[in-house]
Amino acid sequence: MLVCHMKPKFEGGNMSLWKLKKNQKAQITGFSKELDIKFKKRLMDMGIYENGHISCFLSTPFSGPRLYSVEGTMLSLTSEIARNIQVKPLS
């Protein structure tokens, strides 16, 4: 298993990416410790790295994968992954 299914807790104005609402922008502030290192590396290669910007573009019905726009590309992430990414919403 590359991802832990427990819901990690974030503090200090941070929240999980999955909580980000549609059209909301945020800065990526970290990853939960449960995330496998190999998988974290892949996310970084795909554009999700600390201090980078991300915004929720579209959510699909029944909590399906959501679309996030990251540095010029569009990624589809499931709750499994998005819950392990820590972000700080930008006003």
Binding site: M1, F39, P65, L67, L75, S76
Partner: peptide, 10 residues
Amino acid sequence: EADSPFLIEL
């Protein structure tokens, strides 16, 4: 079996 999450770059 080893599993990995669903991740797609559109």
